[in-house]
């Protein structure tokens, strides 16, 4: 029968550096290929809507005629299936997550560069 088995661990924890990340003060360092959010680069996009069809959560909408690409950030599950599906490689994954929101919106990227609007 044992006694005070945890002492060693407890004492070591007392004298070692804290394990806690001081998060809001110290920024989080992301791993290079962490899946955080989808980045859309419109320069090469041919609006084939393959990404929208491959999305398991139906978060992406593509309008071929109006040449808009939109994503519901509150619906995207970061599986990066659209990134794999894109034939022109204009989608990629960024490591940071979408910041917290107070209302759900839809982000639309239009064709004309100076007309880009973030709703």
């Amino acid at each position: 029968m044992g006694f005070a088995e945890f002492t060693k661990t407890a004492v070591r924890n007392l004298f070692s550096k804290p394990a806690t990340k001081n998060y809001p003060k110290v920024k989080k360092e992301f791993f290079e290929n962490a899946r955080g959010h989808v980045i859309f680069d419109e320069t090469d996009c041919i609006y084939c809507s393959l990404c929208a069809r491959k999305c398991p959560a139906d978060a992406i909408k593509v309008d071929r005629n109006a040449k808009t690409w939109s994503i519901v950030r509150a619906g995207c599950v970061q599986c990066s299936n659209c990134v794999d599906a894109c034939p022109k490689k204009c989608l990629s994954m960024g490591p940071e997550y979408t910041p917290v929101m107070t209302e759900k919106g839809c982000e639309t990227y239009a064709r004309v560069p100076d007309n880009t609007e973030d709703n």
Binding site: G2, F3, E5, F6, K8, T9, R12
Partner: peptide, 14 residues
């Protein structure tokens, strides 16, 4: 290894 003994033979746990 350091704290597996707590599960293996600590009185209270047992």
């Amino acid at each position: 290894k350091d704290f597996e003994r707590v599960f293996f033979d600590n009185n209270t746990v047992k």
